[in-house]
Design a protein around this nucleic acid. Sequence first.
DNA 1: GCCAACGTTGGC
DNA 2: GCCAACGTTGGC
Length: 159
Amino acid sequence: MACWLLKTEPNTFSIDDLASRPGHTEPWDGVRNYQARNFLRDGMRVGDEVLLYHSSCAVPAVVGLARVASVPRPDPTQFDPESPYCDPGSDPDHPRWVLVDIRYVRHLPRPVPLAELKQHANALGDLALLRRSRLSVMPVSDAQRDFILALAGDRSAGA
DNA sequence: GCCAACGTTGGC
DNA sequence: GCCAACGTTGGC
């Protein structure tokens, strides 16, 4: 099973918001970067594991676990004139942007701050989070996943 | 709030 | 297709 890292700004939509949604599930809309879109559209499978990351906040950190809960489908906000994610250039017959549903699994025993991840560049150096800081959807290798969960003291580290 | 990184746009 | 200008992200 593949693993991904998804960024979210907790001031807008936090892991606690996800956990409190009906079914603990939310359509992950608003991805408007082609590389991130390609990961969503071409790489994600139902059941894939997700590390949730809080960005643009006091302590940027990996904060919890989730799962991909749907296949990709068109992101309706691209056609919504009221939405900040509206994209007038997207053709309804060939939608440019997609989303998947994301389902909350659990918080990590403790958040793992970005600053701490940076201290382990030997183990995590090719994690896109540490290299291309602006990418909001990125793949995480099994080894990187296990390492981060072990830092957090999560029970499934290495499982 | 500043600013570096970097993705996107558009003129040529 | 190049590349300068511009806009956005996101750490600090």
